[in-house]
């Protein structure tokens, strides 16, 4: 369907991860990582990068900005996506709204067809060029939110269209109106597929906001770069940033799996 990121496959993923870990260990070993001197150096740099002057707080603040932007953008994306998908589904379902539908389609095509980074720059430097007292984070939320709205619209639409049309027919044949049938029969079923995909979108967005540094937002990625500039050290701050992203994404992924199981409880394959 319209997912941006491939989901990680289980099982085989573990083997790949194992090989990767071995490779990493070998690389560390051959670069003399497991000597006492290397450890001392590692600790000294660790202290400089994260401990001294509470520099870890820069990462914490960056993380806050990243989560704030991602959450805000997801909320906007949900609202926009809902409206767009209602237009598209209703149009297909027989409501005569060709102009609205064409607009929705254009919106989705344009916003999915251009990089989020480019959209962000246009919002910041063209559309909101004169709005200087506005917190740049709000501009980023708007830019990412409108962008993800296009993806979320497709998630909603895909979720609704994945439901057997017979469900709508059965509901209508009992005398329920289109709206009621949608609300009580189709949407609740579609949501089972939609909700996990929305979390995947959240995960994709979380990573995507890492370009926000370009317009001057100290998000998690940028915080790592700011520490780099302070200590002039390349690897540790970035690796730390990567680890933080990874941990969040892995927790979310695990949560989504559990959620999926729970949503599909009581159902046979």
């Amino acid at each position: 369907m319209t997912m941006r990121n491939k989901q990680t496959g289980a099982g085989r993923g573990d083997i790949v991860l194992g090989i990767f870990a071995l490779f990493l260990l070998y690389a560390l070993y051959s670069s003399g990582f497991f000597t006492a001197a290397a450890w001392q150096d590692f600790n000294r740099r660790f202290y400089q990068n994260f401990v001294k002057d509470s520099r870890y707080m820069m990462l914490v603040d960056g993380l806050k900005a990243t989560i704030f932007m991602t959450s805000g953008a997801t909320l906007i994306g949900l609202a926009v996506g809902l409206v767009l998908s209602v237009i598209r589904v209703a149009h297909k379902g027989g409501a005569h709204i060709p102009v609205l539908n064409a607009m929705a389609e254009t919106y989705i095509t344009v916003l999915r067809g251009t990089p989020a980074m480019v959209q962000l720059l246009i919002w910041n430097f063209t559309i909101f060029a004169s709005a200087r007292d506005l917190n740049t984070q709000y501009i980023a939320i708007l830019a990412f939110g409108l962008n993800s709205g296009a993806y979320i619209a497709e998630i909603f639409r895909g979720g609704i269209e994945s439901i057997d049309p017979g469900q709508m027919e059965a509901a209508r044949s009992l005398g329920l109106s289109y709206g009621t049938s949608m609300k009580l029969i189709v949407l609740p079923q579609a949501l089972r597929n939609i909700i996990p995909m929305l979390f995947n979108e959240f995960i994709a967005l979380l990573k995507e906001t890492s370009v926000a540094g370009y317009i001057g937002i100290d998000d998690l990625t940028r915080a790592g770069q700011n520490i780099q500039a302070l200590t002039l050290e390349h690897s540790q701050p970035l690796v730390m940033v990567a680890i933080i992203y990874l941990v969040i994404v892995m927790c979310l992924t695990r949560f989504v799996r559990k959620l999926e199981e729970w949503l599909h409880r009581g159902r046979r394959g």
């Binding site: 707080m57 820069m58 603040d61 200087r132 770069q225 780099q228 500039a229 302070l230």
Partner: peptide
């Protein structure tokens, strides 16, 4: 009012970000 100044805080010792 405010004087907005653009910079790139990765250019020691001219500009650096420390904390917030």
């Amino acid at each position: 009012g405010k004087l907005f100044v653009g910079t790139e805080a990765g250019f020691a010792p001219y500009e650096l970000k420390v904390g917030s």
